[in-house]
Amino acid sequence: MRKVHTQEITKNIKEMCIEANYYLSKDMDYAMKQAFETEKSEIGRKILNQLQDNLKIADEEKIPICQDTGMAVIFMEIGQQVFFEGDFLEDAIQEGVRQGYREGFLRKSVVKDPIQRENTKDNTPAVIHYSIVTGDKVKITVAPKGFGSENMSRVFMLKPADGVEGVKNAILTAVKDAGPNACPPMVVGVGIGGTFEKCAILAKKALTRQVNEHSHIPYVRELEEELLKKINGLGIGPGGLGGTTTALAVNINTFATHIAGLPVAVNICCHVNRHVVREI
């Protein structure tokens, strides 16, 4: 058994919320630079160039990359040999978010109730996904999610007979509909299989995978490559103003499913695809 104090969780989450909103992770940064090199449209290149300037200003002048600093999504992978000392874990996580959004001058974009819509003024609660894993470490992934792209995400309950072609169509449909609304170039997170809610979580988790990494399942990897090509052939381009860079990556996660179903979730993310990972 290993003791972890919840104060440490709070401190890390606070720092991670800030870090995620001021600096793009290395994989995303590299993908954005590559996109500028390969983009064919003039206006597309101009926009990608300005997005480079934007990242520089965000870093140097401590202004968030995007004003939508997101709803904080947090994956907690907790080794089963970990024992938490201190406060209730969930409170410690929410406190980290609260401190991060306050001290980092991040926008408070969360309302307490979906219908009554009163701002909580501290960006809590975060959406937290817990899982118990082997070992004595705690792996934390903080992924603040903007809603321009979140709103364009979809779940499709396909039939087994729709097969892989149905899956491709679903993904292309979601990306086409998202178009300029999702601040392309996008990152497309896909979950295939599981149940209605499971595929959505798989898709969300897929967005936290490095954009230069592929699935280790050969057919899934091929699907990722094929879809990226197809998506970039849609012509949407940077800002949706036409071009050859519509997506930077398609990340697909799969899971077992029921004999009668083929759930597919497409979680669209913009070029401000934020993910910070730490292991404690």
Partner: peptide, 29 residues
């Protein structure tokens, strides 16, 4: 940023207005 409805487009034409896009995700710049 993003698409507009046919009603908005009609109103743009009717009033000789204009819809501009600013670069989404370039808030610092």
């Amino acid at each position: 940023k993003g698409k507009r409805s046919p009603e908005v487009i009609d109103a743009i034409i009717r009033n000789k207005a204009v819809y501009f896009a600013a670069i989404g995700g370039a808030g610092a710049l």
